Computed example of a mutant assay.
Amino acid sequence: LSKDSNVLHFYFSEARDRLKQIREEQSRSSREVVDIWEQFLSYFSDKLGNDVWPVYEQVCIAACDCGEISLAHRCVRELNRQFPKSFRVKGLEGMVLEANQRYDTAEHLYKTILQDDPTNSVAEKRLVVIYKSQNKIKEAITELRKYLDSHMADTDSWLELSDLYLSQMDYAHAAFCLEELILANPHYHLFHQRYAEIRYTQGGTENLLEARAYFSQAIKLNPNNIRALYGLFLCASNLATKQRSAESKNMKYAAWAAEQISQLYRKLGGRGTKSSSDSTEQIKALGGMFDKLQLTSS
């Protein structure tokens, strides 16, 4: 580093502002955070003033992500000196224990925090992470359901719970989680798509009809959703073989979805770096795939 004070001040300001930007964007960028701290800011921490405490927290989390356990310990030690009774700092201690694979100790720490502060959402979520890390899926589901009883607006947790249920092939409960998400955000096409996929997986005429409706809604909200278009095609194809009275209607749905997918692939074929011959071959292959899926009644 140059000894010129103006140059040092410039680098210091750049490093400090970059860490602040990462915090504001809620982007972990863990390796970058650790490198900025170790290569520069750690030598000038006294110049950060009160900003040093959020920086210590940020660096601690990043160090846990990168497996830099000794650095994480140093950050927690400094934070404990300043905030000796902080539940937030105790939560960071738990994360360091997790990074060191001391799950039992971390679990005990989080439960102790919850005894003193039953509404501590960080401790509740970290318990879920611990159970997932040890493949204790049933315990993770129980803990996450308990958390959602008092934090029903947390969409990320509903998605997480849905994924946990899917890992156990509990499609009914996974669908319920998506229903809650759709109620909270009815205009987000991916929630409709995921709900439809679960209903399609469950099978049966009633579930296929519901899946068709939700795939259609996902397409209405986002006409470029190829996955939803393909889901509609599959639902309509299956229903055409099951419901003779509605066969022609479902065949029309399937034909429309297939045409929309083909059009999207043609549009994509004119972009990117692939040659026109490669794009033509892809479109032909797609058409062949649809031709093989005959829509015939059973």
Rank of each mutant, 00 (worst) to 15 (best):
residue 24 E to F: 03
residue 110 Y to V: 05
residue 147 Y to G: 03
residue 271 R to L: 15
residue 210 E to A: 07
residue 156 D to A: 11
residue 256 W to Y: 12
residue 62 A to S: 12
residue 89 V to Y: 04
residue 140 A to Y: 01
residue 195 Y to T: 00
residue 149 D to A: 09
residue 254 A to V: 08
residue 284 K to E: 13
residue 227 R to G: 09
residue 216 S to N: 01
residue 38 E to M: 09
residue 266 R to Y: 08
residue 91 G to M: 05
residue 288 G to A: 04
residue 284 K to N: 13
residue 27 S to M: 14
residue 122 V to R: 10
residue 194 R to C: 11
residue 295 L to M: 13
residue 109 L to M: 01
residue 134 Q to K: 15
residue 80 N to M: 08
residue 102 R to L: 10
residue 298 S to H: 09
residue 205 T to C: 03
residue 281 E to K: 13
residue 193 Q to S: 14
residue 159 L to R: 05
residue 146 K to L: 09
residue 73 H to I: 08
residue 237 S to Y: 04
residue 17 D to E: 14
residue 68 E to T: 02
residue 227 R to Y: 07
residue 295 L to Q: 02
residue 217 Q to R: 08
residue 177 C to M: 02
residue 224 N to Y: 13
residue 44 F to K: 11
residue 231 G to W: 02
residue 92 L to T: 03
residue 257 A to V: 06
residue 239 L to F: 13
residue 65 D to P: 06
residue 56 Y to G: 02
residue 74 R to N: 08
residue 288 G to Q: 07
residue 142 T to N: 14
residue 289 M to Q: 12
residue 226 I to S: 06
residue 183 L to F: 09
residue 182 I to K: 00
residue 295 L to W: 00
residue 56 Y to L: 03
residue 284 K to G: 06
residue 75 C to G: 00
residue 41 L to N: 04
residue 259 E to T: 15
residue 32 E to T: 15
residue 215 F to D: 04
residue 108 H to K: 15
residue 175 A to N: 01
residue 200 Y to F: 11
residue 17 D to K: 11
residue 29 S to Q: 11
residue 114 L to R: 02
residue 227 R to N: 15
residue 285 A to C: 08
residue 72 A to L: 10
residue 130 I to N: 01
residue 128 V to Q: 03
residue 219 I to H: 05
residue 294 Q to S: 12
residue 259 E to A: 14
residue 261 I to Y: 04
residue 286 L to I: 12
residue 219 I to D: 02
residue 122 V to N: 11
residue 296 T to M: 03
residue 293 L to W: 03
residue 280 T to D: 12
residue 151 H to R: 06
residue 217 Q to A: 02
residue 76 V to F: 08
residue 121 S to E: 11
residue 104 D to H: 13
residue 288 G to D: 10
residue 74 R to W: 07
residue 91 G to R: 01
residue 107 E to I: 07
residue 162 S to L: 01
residue 140 A to F: 01
residue 13 S to A: 15
residue 250 N to A: 02
residue 249 K to A: 14
residue 113 I to C: 04
residue 258 A to L: 01
residue 11 Y to L: 10
residue 275 S to E: 05
residue 252 K to R: 05
